[in-house]
Design a protein around this nucleic acid. Structure first.
Lengths: 174, 174
DNA sequence: CGTCACGTTGAACATTCTCAACCCGAGTGG
DNA sequence: CCACTCGGGTTGAGAATGTTCAACGTGACG
């Protein structure tokens, strides 16, 4: 029984400064074929000090990650399972769009129900029933590795989704 | 119904780079009288660029915060309520000790059951029953604003606590 | 054609919430 | 000094939500 803590999409960074720590406190796994770039600590330090704009972009990315984790905690603590599932779907859909993944009519989401259940803190069996409920409600359908949003307004409403935490509107340069 | 996302103790930082964002995605509240230092973005930028060791310390602090959030997510998703409560108590106790708060025989923990419940994603009523269970088990007692760990080994065992994520052992300077 | 991973369903059970009552100690105003 | 109130804390009982276990379906692939 594992807990999945985040889903990374193309372009996402992870563990930028993790080299500073003695021991890892989590691990990372690819669930699709993936192209991975690694950056050494020295390169990282150089880049951060010589390119303030890159450094700034990385700070912002990290703030978004933190916001996402907070939203995840909120989901776990205060949303029913159907709200939680709907919320995650909203998030993944929006993040997918943000980075330009094709989302019409469907967004590819190569996640088994077991994976989703492990990220949402519920049983695969229960998730299955919730997905059925969402399907019957006409809000969305998840099958064969792709997410079809049928009624976005309804999905957002079920989820109580507020996209603010993804910080798509950024502060104008100071 | 709110979700509490973190507890800050004396010396903890929060929202270091939050000035980069257009809008806040959470808020912060003092639950005791507190001394708060604020740092402007300019001061922050100067400090980060002129004092690499401070910058490094801040990165590490942030990694610890992230580890803590991940542990929080794991608690929500994969621990029963008694494990969750015990885990939070272990964390708070250890963090309190780390920063030198007096912890013998009791650690001052000015948190009402309602606050704790809102941080643990459960009802105050249910939390109350769990606290009773922990009390009866002889592991710990929480009353009148202070935490008394009676049987640390038992508490750790109930919680399934592994302190690694707090990263008290840091990497030797590279 | 068998197997294997994944999805789907039913039924019994466990956990947690809700609602409602009551307790208690600390202030507060009469 | 007493009665009141108010913010916690505690407890019981029924209802809702989620889990477990076990069975069966279904498509891909060797």
């Amino acid at each position: 029984m594992r807990q999945i803590l985040a889903f990374l999409m193309p372009g996402d960074c992870c563990d930028l400064h993790v080299g500073l720590l003695e021991e890892m406190d989590h691990c990372i796994q690819a669930i699709t074929p993936a192209v991975v770039a690694t950056i050494t600590r020295v390169e990282m330090d150089d880049m951060m000090s010589q390119h303030p704009k890159i450094a700034k972009a990385l700070y912002i990315a990290q703030l978004v990650d933190e916001g996402t984790m907070r939203a995840w905690i909120t989901s776990m603590g205060r949303r029913t399972s159907i709200e939680r599932v709907a919320h995650l779907m909203c998030e993944l859909y929006l993040r997918g769009r943000n980075i330009g993944l094709p989302s019409e009519p469907e967004l590819a989401l190569p996640l088994s129900q077991a994976l989703l259940a492990d990220s949402l803190g519920m049983t695969a069996v229960h998730l299955n029933r919730i997905l059925k409920e969402l399907r019957l409600s006409g809000a969305m359908t998840l099958q064969r590795g792709s997410l079809l949003v049928r009624d976005a307004a309804k999905l957002v409403q079920i989820a109580g989704f507020d996209e603010n935490y993804l910080h798509r509107r950024l502060r104008r340069a100071a």
